[in-house]
Design a protein around this nucleic acid. Structure first.
Lengths: 368, 368
DNA sequence: TTCGTTTCCGAAACCGATTTTGTTGACTTA
DNA sequence: TAAGTCAACAAAATCGGTTTCGGAAACGAA
């Protein structure tokens, strides 16, 4: 069993070569005032001894940790967000290429989140933060801005954005979604969204409204509902919207999880998705392809987004102007089979559903 | 904008109180040789100045980082593993309580994984590792054992297990699964698994075989297939097994993703899941409840597992005997609606499917 | 009063790097 | 030949803590 713990230090290398440790350090950091001969002897010794500098010691002196932090919100719904998993994957890949690392922590409340950020900063464990799931009025952005600590956000907020951010053009996507549905023949289009505290949820709702507006369709607030951002919320939202007298024939959902729940509600109550009711989601989850019917959805690459924000943050850490890193990406609609022309009028749909609502659902009693 | 960067050090505190910095350090580390009066003065100053010790400096001297590492495999299939997301969530929660942090990195090959582990050890960025998705012959376990670096695994391997581990009793679960299916009336039971390099995949396959053996059912290797561990693999696996002359009437799948793909294949070809064909998965993914029909699955709490292994690793780091932390948990079967008594004989099922195989599938052409 | 013991804390070494400052000898230049 | 320049490296300071060592004051016992 070879040792790794009390491993070889810069002093060992220096002694082995017969130079001062400062010289070894300069060679390793590409200083130019070292003769080629000495440089090579040192490089050889480094290789022979298998020397790798201690990140801790280096950080102490340089004040940089080569580590980025991400604090992920948990506990709102249940379980982990599939989007975040891929996002983190993207970050980790990007950082790996640059030799940086990612510190992941979780927080179950806003207060806890700020506390955690504060601790990581005070203990100097990270150089900067990646902030996800921005809120409209985000306490993290406020805190970090106030203290001048480097960070990038995935998503914007309503605060003055003098920081780096990357976001998806949610408004355009949802406005486009509405126009797509309208062109299919839907005139009553419903929206199932999430808490408007979340910036993306607000933007998607706004995009939905703007889309209607641009078409000159009269808006009906009864066609909008806000739910927990999971399948159960989607199920409940579909029930709420569809059980009206004049239900929407299409449901635009803020996330795939909502859409999956909504589809479930429809199927459970004898409504054919893709004709009786159209459902569109957002996220491009792989599982959406295997839902019945396969889910039509907007997608963005979470992994790519992760890589993008990482590189932004690194540029910011290198001293570049944060406000020069602000980018908006477009989502693309992946059409599968959950959307189509309406087969029934709103009224007929309402009648059909209500006749079913007193019967048993076809399978189990999910989400009820 | 208050400063956080060049923040308050132990020297500032010492100067403020008028003591040596060693004294401040001793107070903060609960040494007993400090008078109550001095202790209180120092504590007050610490509070007033908002002092928090630098993790870096402390680590340099103590040789401990208060950070655990996890290297997650990526790129095999596509996207992130939903199990891992929850698992990491569980780890992060447990560590948060103890003031430790989690360093997450990714690796796209075995070599890269070992390299990454090596780098993190050499640079002294972590105190120990959490190893997931153990392989039957796992190079990471071999490497870490050889170098005497602390680690815990989630899952066993065939190597001599003189380390801490936590695992699910995959064999028992799958043997039980087979017996459950048999008791429903299934006599030809198929298995869709994954690469046998993965320890859990091997164990589940073995459990399947043992289950059949315990019932005295003759085994047929044509009823087993190994696929990529995602929905697409499940789809392909179902096609392979069901398109035989004497197809299985039940499919036991190694993961929920496989099961979801298998269900999709059945539905696409007019087979009623839960009667014509029974499908059982493993993982307890939330989305399984919203599949049609809702997926019957084995489940374990990934989050709980994450917490469990974290605490084990911390005990190991505290110097306790690793071999005293080895635990096996039982998975539980969550019955939903994808299993039931067979409605057709194997032969009739084969006939029904083949008559459909030349037709169009109902929706799209997923996985084909 | 004197000689141990404690109690409490200051001083300094140390962890392993980076960076600043200083020194040496060779080489120019006037 | 003396003074100045430069290349190449040694020596020491530094980052911010922890830990060891040792000494002064207080206390108790002989």
């Amino acid at each position: 069993m070879s040792r790794l713990r009390g491993s070889v230090t810069i002093d060992d290398v220096a002694r082995h070569v017969g130079v001062a440790k400062g010289t070894v350090s300069r060679v390793l950091n590409n200083y130019t005032d070292i003769s080629e001969a000495t440089r090579e002897r040192i490089l050889k010794a480094v290789k022979d001894l298998g020397y790798q500098p201690s990140a801790t010691a280096r950080n102490l002196k340089r004040g940089r940790q080569d580590t980025l932090g991400i604090v992920i919100p948990v506990g709102h719904g249940n379980g982990a967000d599939p989007f975040l998993a891929e996002f983190i994957d993207g970050i980790a890949r990007a950082l790996d290429e640059l030799g940086l690392d990612l510190l992941v922590t979780t927080a179950h409340s806003r207060e806890h989140m700020i506390e955690t950020i504060q601790r990581l900063i005070a203990r100097r464990k990270v150089d900067g933060f990646i902030i996800t799931r921005t809120e409209v009025n985000d306490p993290r952005i406020a805190f970090l801005s106030e203290h001048g600590f480097p960070f990038v956000t995935h998503g914007r907020s309503c605060l003055p954005a003098n920081h780096a951010w990357f976001d998806i053009d949610n408004e355009t996507a949802f406005a486009d979604g509405v126009r797509h549905l309208y062109s299919l023949g839907h005139e009553r289009i419903g929206f199932i969204g999430g808490s408007l505290d979340l910036n993306f949820a607000l933007q998607r709702r706004d995009g939905y409204r703007h889309g209607l507006q641009s078409l000159g369709v009269t808006q009906d607030r009864a066609l909008e509902t806000l739910q927990d951002l999971n399948e159960k919320g989607g199920y409940a939202g579909a029930r709420e919207l569809l059980s009206q007298v004049y239900p929407p024939t299409a449901l635009l959902c803020a996330t795939d999880a909502l859409a999956i729940g909504a589809i479930r509600f429809c199927r459970n109550h004898g409504l054919k998705v893709g004709s009786d009711v159209t459902v569109i989601g957002y996220d491009g989850l792989p599982v959406g392809e295997y839902i019945d019917p396969p889910l039509t959805t907007f997608s963005q690459s979470a992994q790519e987004a992760g890589g993008r924000v990482s590189r932004m943050l690194i540029d910011v850490l290198d001293g570049k102007d944060p406000t020069s890193f602000q980018a908006l990406a477009q989502a693309t609609l992946t059409r599968r089979a959950s959307d189509g022309a309406p087969s029934k009028t709103s009224e007929a749909l309402g009648v059909a559903l209500r006749s079913r609502l007193n019967q048993q659902p076809s399978y189990g009693n999910n989400g009820e």
